[in-house]
Amino acid sequence: MLSRMRLQGAVFLRGEYSEAWAYRSPTPTVTAALLSPGSPRVALFHLVATGRCWVALHDGERHWARAGDVIVVPYGDVHTMGGSADSEIVPMEELLDPPPWARMPVITLGAGGRPTDVVCGYLSSDHPLFDPRLRALPPLFVVSLGSGPARDWVRASIDYALAQTAPAERGGLACPTQLPELIVREVLRLHLASAPNIECGWFAALGDPVLAPALAAIHEAPEVHWQVETLAGLAHVSESLLDERFRRTLGLPPIRYLAGWRMHVAGDLLGSTTLSVAAVARRVGYDSEEAFSRAFKRNTGRSPRDARLPAGTRPGG
């Protein structure tokens, strides 16, 4: 399914940061105009080459990433990135010269302490997966490639893209676009492996006029105690029709999809933030930590604490 998606993009920026440092990205509109004129918004990805860093959206919750991890901001939302030490946040507009660029921009920021190197890229796509109204993906997530061929391949691909990138005639950068596409496809494949019933037509469901409004509501607010009646009302169809469409397209009824999506979101939060298990439970609609832990283990085969952020990526770890 991912291989059939039409994606366009490039590696566009290198960041050489040293403790202490922090920056804030431009708005989605400004970012799209800068990187892909004519596109309403772009998806962003950041590969942490060395060191570690955090990234946060407007809610301020920090997701941590270390060398080899890939940070994805699929809707290009305003985000802040920084290192372990506290620092004044610098707007990216103050660090980045406007295009056209004579060479790939290299941002240098920090006070000279422990280094963190980040390679940044973007993608544009008209696929519903990247439609911000559907929120089929979390607005921010971190994918750990672990060790082995996938990690080595992504790193080698980024190195090659950096070596091949050259100035373009009309601003931006000319780059082998297939490399960013392949990198993001691999990252999405790893991330979506835990999405509920993706193999039964999840991509098709995102474009279904009946399912799309219900999915958008579930994805935007998994903590809400959704009822089939309420979801059917959002889609302007009967409960029976919504239930039938869910079963036919996704292979399961609406409330079971909701339960699976909650576990998918919980796995992201447990793997990339320092939120407590109780806080993660509340974020996905559970009032009881015990009930959440039982549901998570039943769904994933491991306890929430086993899925926790590795100690080495926590603040001070």
Rank of each mutant, 00 (worst) to 15 (best):
M1A: 15
M1I: 06
L2H: 02
L7Q: 09
G9E: 05
G9Q: 09
A10Y: 14
V11D: 05
V11R: 11
S18W: 06
A20V: 03
A20R: 15
W21L: 00
S25H: 07
L34E: 15
L35V: 05
L35H: 15
P37E: 03
S39C: 10
P40G: 01
P40K: 04
R41V: 02
F45N: 00
V55C: 15
H58M: 14
W64M: 03
A67F: 01
A67Y: 01
V72R: 13
D77T: 05
D77G: 09
T80L: 03
T80D: 08
T80C: 05
M81N: 08
M81A: 15
P91K: 05
E94L: 14
E94P: 10
L95P: 08
P99D: 04
P100Q: 03
R103I: 09
R103F: 12
V106T: 10
I107C: 06
T108N: 10
T108V: 11
T108C: 14
G110P: 08
A111E: 10
D117K: 12
G121L: 04
G121Y: 02
H127S: 01
L129K: 11
L129T: 05
P132S: 07
L134H: 07
A136I: 00
V142T: 04
V143C: 06
V143G: 05
S147Y: 13
R151Y: 15
V154M: 02
A156H: 15
A161I: 02
L162C: 06
L162N: 07
A163T: 15
P167D: 03
P167I: 02
A174M: 12
A174P: 15
C175V: 12
L179H: 06
P180V: 01
V184Q: 06
E186C: 09
E186Q: 11
V187H: 02
L188H: 00
R189W: 01
L190R: 14
H191V: 00
L192F: 04
A195G: 02
P196E: 00
N197I: 03
I198G: 09
I198M: 09
I198A: 12
W202R: 08
W202H: 08
W202L: 14
L206G: 05
G207D: 06
A216C: 02
A217Y: 02
H219F: 09
H225L: 07
H225M: 08
Q227E: 12
Q227L: 05
Q227C: 07
E229A: 13
T230Q: 15
V237S: 01
S240T: 15
S240G: 10
L241N: 14
R245Y: 02
R247P: 06
R248P: 12
T249R: 08
L252P: 12
W261H: 13
R262N: 03
M263G: 08
V265I: 13
V265R: 14
A266E: 00
D268T: 12
L270P: 14
V277Q: 06
A279I: 08
A279G: 09
A281I: 02
R282H: 10
V284N: 07
N299E: 12
R302G: 04
R305H: 09
A307P: 04
A307K: 03
L309W: 04
G312S: 13
